[in-house]
């Protein structure tokens, strides 16, 4: 009995920790280095001076018309207007990303948060331990490397891009 209640308490603490874990506006975006292709690594800090959009998502190969990455692929010129570079991030491997990019004709990098699995997603507080995938979360990072906006979407809902564009517009007014 004692043991059970002890675990229950741990669970609760863990749950509260998870709720407050996601990095939010004002925080410095933790640097990372992830593979975009088998022989190309992307370092976040190399993008200082540019706005960066990080789109964490659960997995490659979701149905096409409602696919978040397919939507962002159509929007690159709008992101470009705000001097912003977008990266998709999931725990899929570089080879999986490569096949997905080719199949969907994606024109922006997908980063593989593959080894150690989900490390960057965890750093940003958007890793789902139970399913072992990234949550569906968006970050807009300003030119100085600070998080300007973040949003956690229900996993089943594609969050669209209006929030990203609003955040970029806000930054362009500064």
């Amino acid at each position: 009995m004692t043991n059970n209640s002890h675990y229950a308490l741990l669970d609760k603490k863990d749950f509260i920790f998870k709720l407050h874990n996601m990095l939010e506006k004002g925080a410095t975006a933790p640097d990372f280095e992830l593979n975009a292709t088998p022989d190309q690594k992307i370092k976040l800090k190399d993008f200082k001076g540019k706005n960066v959009i990080l789109a964490f998502y659960p997995a490659d190969w979701s149905p096409v018309c409602s696919d978040q990455m397919a939507l962002y692929n159509e929007m690159l010129k709008y992101f470009g207007k705000y001097d912003a570079q977008i990266f998709g991030i999931s725990v899929d491997s570089v080879w999986c990303h490569l096949a997905f990019e080719q199949d969907r004709k994606l024109h922006f990098p997908l980063l593989a948060d593959f080894e150690p699995k989900g490390k960057v997603s965890k750093t940003y507080g958007v890793y789902d331990d139970e399913v072992g995938e990234s949550k569906r979360a968006l970050f807009v990072i300003d030119k100085e490397g600070k998080i300007a906006w973040s949003y956690l979407s229900p996993t089943a809902v594609n969050p669209g891009a209006d929030g990203i564009l609003d955040a970029l517009e806000e930054l362009s007014k500064k």
């Binding site: 409602s66 709008y78 929030g163």
Partner: peptide, 24 residues
């Protein structure tokens, strides 16, 4: 039209709006 969709939060097709509010 496309840009208005993005600004309105279209996240896939078809997306519907009823009296100006997104219908999920």
């Amino acid at each position: 039209d496309f840009e208005s969709g993005i600004r309105s939060g279209v996240n896939g097709t078809p997306s519907f709006y009823v009296n100006g509010t997104k219908f999920d």
